[in-house]
Amino acid sequence: MKIIVAIKQVPERDARIRIDSGNKWIDLEDVEFSMNESDAYALEEALQLKEAHGGEVIVVSAGPERAGKTIREALAKGADRAIHLQSSDETELAAYDALGVARLLAASIQDEKADLVLTGLQSDDLGLGQTGVILAELLGLPHASLILKIEVAGNGLKVLRELEDGWFQHIELATPAVLTIQSGNTKLRYATLMGIKKAKTKEVRVIAVADLVASDPSLKPTAPSVVLDQVKLPHKQRSTQLLGGSPAEAAAALVEKLQFEVRVI
């Protein structure tokens, strides 16, 4: 099975971020980057499928030169080769919305004729949750989102899909297909030291975004349908509420608040 995994390099989850002077994005100076979490699960699913059924895992990532480290990490974990859709700087890709990025990704992988395309369900930075789904449409392939588990069944796949409120759905679909993967259903592997060494010898095909656009003018950034207007840090607030009544009443009120106000249970 030939599997393509689209991965994105995003600011690390624990990174202490500052808003940049234009209030449009975060200041990238001194920020650590890592593989988008759900993309890491997509890669893990792909590697497990390859281990069970054989085949090839190819990672594709759109991003500036720094994304090379995340690509290398994917290769070190066991991907066979990579396509780096490289932007010339931090801003080139910002001119595209999710549709535009999906177009670029589709253009860079369509010749591979993969049996399966996996990606995370959304990115940890923008969180649009669109790129994978649009990619399926552009490639003319069926897709399923929020996937927790993939099994090969006959000529197609059987997948477990997460619904809301503890419900799950089992879906069978034919390949080729695109799946967007939910985090957390499996344990991510570490890059072994041997894997890191071996990654140096694996192929990374670098395609400059500008070259891709030059070869196909329809890939030029058009007026984006979604525009990022402003980025701001959540307002810090602290307040104390005393819940009155009997212990039982206070507990019931607390449960209600935890359930419906802060939604943590």
């Binding site: 290398r72 990490e73 070190a76 072994t192 030291l193 140096k200």
Partner: peptide
């Protein structure tokens, strides 16, 4: 270099 950081990241995560 990239490899050195990856090695450190693996050991750190472990």
């Amino acid at each position: 270099n990239e490899d050195e950081r990856l090695v450190r990241d693996t050991a750190r995560a472990f």
